[in-house]
Nucleic acid binder design. Structure first.
Lengths: 352, 352
DNA sequence: GCTGGCTACGTCAACGTTGACGTAGGAGTT
DNA sequence: AACTCCTACGTCAACGTTGACGTAGCCAGC
């Protein structure tokens, strides 16, 4: 049974009646505004406590001139992905310390779902948004932004203007990672990437191309596999790569699930000490594997904090020009990226 | 610059004026209620589209009799923990399909923070709560519950009455895990647990005790380590356990971070193929480690779905007696839990 | 003693929406 | 022709709160 069935939430009016003051005075006391004497303040506090009064932020924000709901929306791809979860946590921490709560949703990288969530969030009059944009067009986001909603994109930049965004050094770090492999002597470095519609995938691929070029290693098109969304596709692509006549001696896996999928296949084939791997995005336990997985590690909490700071500042009226903040990623050497190439079965290395 | 600086959000009044109808008729059209003719409906829709009208759920829920905000609060320990994140995602999915959004917060297992978040959530008039209770007393939760807020506890049951809850088979699965180790011949099975204030820790410890008793293995108090909150404490405890004169030949690590901390030490010492380990809670990549980590896997999405179903049903007025749903966990054999005991340096096995 | 300024209140309306209820006009019934 | 009934609207007030403004009482200063 509902312990409070039939009961009604006490309102300011109830408190005012019990304290024998006007609702306006209750409002002043509750909000700590000046204009209430000490004795009256005490009476109001007592009454509120007695009745179990709780302010109604819904009504308050409807009436107040600033119209703030003290709530922001967070719209990520998949809240159960460790990357998204860490990002959410960082945003939430920052917001909480400003008295702002977070409405969170997963878009599943689907435009329809993203649009529906945007509608739901705007119906609740969130003060701002932190969004990991679904790949492809960003019409719905642009539309929302043009209505004036403060918005910060994370992980991927907007394709429209006047919007803050926080990303990492996708291209430069990818270039460095490939350069690291090339410096060990690798010349057959495969690229395994997530959906090509994703900006991060494109940037990481661009970094891969630049890294090869910079090292003077020709790009072999057959070593490039994209649109690997999820572990299974990544594993399948890894299999076909290893079955090539001249298989790669190193893999650059450009997303965390892709890294894991590739890793699974290497282990099945007993090649995990033979084929070098550098992954983009760190993941839990990457250091416990044997060999440890060398990764490009993003500063996820840093990205989240920055994004939260930006959106909170915009909500507070900051009208300085839009910012594209780039939070540097770092190459973390753990072993898998430090494996030198050596001729394997079917390899043509040394025979050229 | 804010693209909409100075502009005001269009309201029903604006739409009504443009469509030359009353606001009430706009309300009917927007909410799909009967009583609006086809021609008028069309005019209203056009006007709404022209103005970019968006309903204000805040005002709507203030006025409506049911007073629903179509929002629930999710109050977990740490949204960046994979367990919490997976749970959040499951709850969010279920809620979203009912048109309900999720306000999420991390309590960090801290009563003050939990209380503050409860206040924030109730100020926003959430329709219900899904809570992972902080350890120790649950006064604030009980108070909130007694006010009538629908509430479902997950992972840990309430210490007060009349409240739904969803947990897993902590005790039985722990018993089974220990039994599994004992059946392989282990007699020195250590217990490494999280904070003793947590109900799950207590239950898992109880299962450990029962498992030993059932297998006829005497409990050695020095093999029991608790209050290991986080990987570092777990690693330190593992070290002292391994340094015992008669070290354990198997570890039952009763929480995912504890499992990882212990694993780290075993690897450092090269004992990961020697000392058996079963962990409670699965974690990503547990299968990729060598050996794969045998774990008790909770059905996290199942728990989240059930919790969401319960709270949504309560919000819809379900007044059936409170439920304590138990979602079964399963032992997943991956190798680390199938290592048989053999005498090691300092072990007394065989010398007794 | 009157003015001016200040403090501590109160009154009123409005935020955007919807429930309760009213009404005009047409169709159907007797 | 008078009646009921129904549909398609409109009017009004209220949800809980706060901004704008009003006012009573007090004190200081001349």
């Amino acid at each position: 049974m509902d312990p409070a069935a039939g009961r009604r939430e006490p309102t300011m009016r109830d408190v005012a009646a019990l304290a024998k003051v006007s609702t306006k005075t209750v409002s002043r006391v509750i909000n700590g505004l000046p204009g209430a004497g000490t004795e009256v303040t005490e009476r109001v506090r007592d009454a509120a406590r007695t009745l179990g009064y709780r302010p109604n932020l819904t009504a308050s924000s409807l009436r107040r001139s600033d119209r703030r709901s003290a709530t922001i929306g967070v719209l990520f791809e998949d809240l159960s992905n460790p990357f998204d979860a860490a990002l959410l946590r960082a945003v939430e921490d920052r917001a909480r310390h400003s008295g702002v709560l977070v409405l969170a949703g997963s878009s599943e990288d689907d435009h329809t779902q993203q649009r529906e969530l945007l509608v739901s969030l705007s119906a609740r009059r969130v003060d701002g948004l932190v969004v990991m944009a679904a790949g492809g067009h960003q019409d719905a986001l642009q539309h929302e932004r043009e209505r004036g909603t403060p918005m910060v994109l994370v992980d991927r930049p907007p394709t429209f203007g006047a919007t803050d965004c926080v990303t990492t050094t996708n291209r430069a770090s990818s270039r460095d990672a490939v350069g690291h492999l090339a410096a060990l002597g690798h010349r057959d470095i495969a690229f395994l990437g997530d959906r090509r519609t994703l900006w991060t995938s494109q940037e990481r691929y661009a970094g891969y191309v630049e890294g090869l070029a910079h090292a003077g290693v020709p790009l072999r098109g057959e070593l490039v596999r994209t649109d690997l969304h999820g572990e299974d596709l990544a594993a399948a692509a890894t299999t076909t790569l290893l079955d090539l006549d001249r298989p790669p001696t190193a893999l650059f896996t450009a997303q965390n699930l892709v890294t894991v999928g590739a890793q699974r296949v290497l282990r099945e084939r007993g090649l995990h000490h033979r084929v070098a791997v550098i992954g983009f995005d760190d993941f839990p336990l990457a250091d416990l594997l044997d060999p440890g997985i060398t990764v490009v590690r993003q500063d996820v909490p840093g990205i989240g904090r920055k994004a939260a700071d930006l959106v909170l500042a915009r909500i507070d009226g900051d009208t300085s020009p839009p910012v594209h903040a780039v939070v540097p990623a770092a190459l973390v050497h753990r072993g898998s990226g430090e494996i030198a190439p050596r001729p394997g079965p079917g390899s043509l290395v040394g025979r050229q």
